[in-house]
Amino acid sequence: MSQPPTGSPDIEPVRVIIDETELARTVARMAHQILEANRGAANLLLLGIPTRGVCLANRLAALIEQIEGAPVRVGQLDITMYRDDLRRHPTRLVGRTSIPGSIDDAVVVLVDDVLFSGRTIAAAFDALRDLGRPRAVRLAVLVDRGHRELPIAADNVGRSISTAADERVAVRLSEVDGYDRVTIARVKEGQP
């Protein structure tokens, strides 16, 4: 695992909200909570939203398998083509959607790293509707940072934090970034 960078030139100051140890603990708790709410792993289908939601879904699936002793279905759902803001940005690259088996009658748990406006999740509902009819859809997020623009709430939250709208929450996971850490920083003017 590479060392996390100590600062970033464009944003500062950076505060660490969740460090590596705490992140592992948080994800483990989420795995237990998902199982508790579903009364076991039956019918569960974890769908991560690219990029880091997929890493989290895989981690949750591995933990659930450890706890229950049986494998749980895990896949990924890209929502790029369902976004409501495509016309506001240059063409976006499309991520991968891969779903093991059918979503019909499954209890789908959408997994994402940060819940912010809620628009990604709204797009995910549209994407799911084109793929089938799950029995229920739940939402698990590592960080809920508030500022919802739609009536959407998570069933399973790793950490709720209050943020200012111009702050940026960055989830870094070893699969993608080489280290585990969640930080928050105020975005300097002119930064997206």
């Binding site: 495509l86 506001r88 240059p90 063409t91």
Partner: peptide
């Protein structure tokens, strides 16, 4: 998608 899927200004992000 590449022609019509984004805003009319700018290139692929």
């Amino acid at each position: 998608y590449h022609l019509l899927g984004g805003s009319d200004e700018g290139e692929t992000a």
